[in-house]
């Protein structure tokens, strides 16, 4: 459909299936690991803080890219049906509990578990990590589909 995408496919909105494309999950894991290694390279930080910062940066990026940006960058022929939906909500045509959704939701949780483990369950890190966890997990839950709490990001 839209000429700008460059390839011929029958999908009206490429945002719906980008998270199922070949190699995207492994790329995602590699990017998160890379992020972690880059943070590890900063000399003043201890290993614990590196994990916590990885988790926080991951959550913030997730939130910005998947839960705050709306619509699509493509010329779609759907008359703007995705105009008011975030990237996460458009995933798999709004279907819930799909493979991609399960993967990305559990990835956030696993990252939290790892961060907790490597920070030796210290209370200060616990606070930061849990806040980051909520930021990336809550908006992904099916219960929050198309829900705009306190009108945040409503239009």
């Amino acid at each position: 459909m839209a000429g700008v995408v460059g390839t011929a496919h029958s999908c009206a909105n490429p945002n719906t299936n980008v998270w199922n494309s070949r190699g995207i999950w492994i790329s995602y894991i590699i990017v998160v690991l890379l992020l972690h290694f880059i943070i590890l390279c900063i000399p003043v930080l201890t290993v614990e803080w590196c994990w916590t910062i990885t988790n926080i940066v991951h959550s913030i990026l997730m939130y910005l890219l998947m839960h705050s940006v709306k619509g699509t960058p493509f010329h779609t022929t759907d008359q703007g049906s995705s105009r008011f939906l975030t990237g996460w909500e458009q995933m798999d045509g709004e279907e819930q509990f799909t493979e991609a959704r399960k993967f990305f939701l559990s990835a956030s949780i696993v990252l939290y578990l790892l961060a907790s483990f490597y920070t030796k369950y210290e209370y200060e890190h616990f606070q930061w990590n849990t806040a980051a966890l909520l930021l990336s997990v809550l908006p992904k839950l099916p219960q929050f589909h198309r829900v705009r709490v306190f009108g945040i990001n409503e239009y």
């Binding site: 709004e94 279907e95 819930q96 509990f97 559990s106 949780i109 578990l113 907790s116």
Partner: peptide, 29 residues
């Protein structure tokens, strides 16, 4: 062995969440 109990609870809940997630079926709105 040093996990505080609140942390353990949260982790268990999260692990249960992953379990729940993987056994949920795709759902159309």
């Amino acid at each position: 062995k040093t996990i505080p109990y609140y942390h353990l609870c949260i982790e268990l809940v999260l692990i249960y969440c992953i379990y729940w997630l993987y056994f949920s079926r795709p759902l159309r709105n």
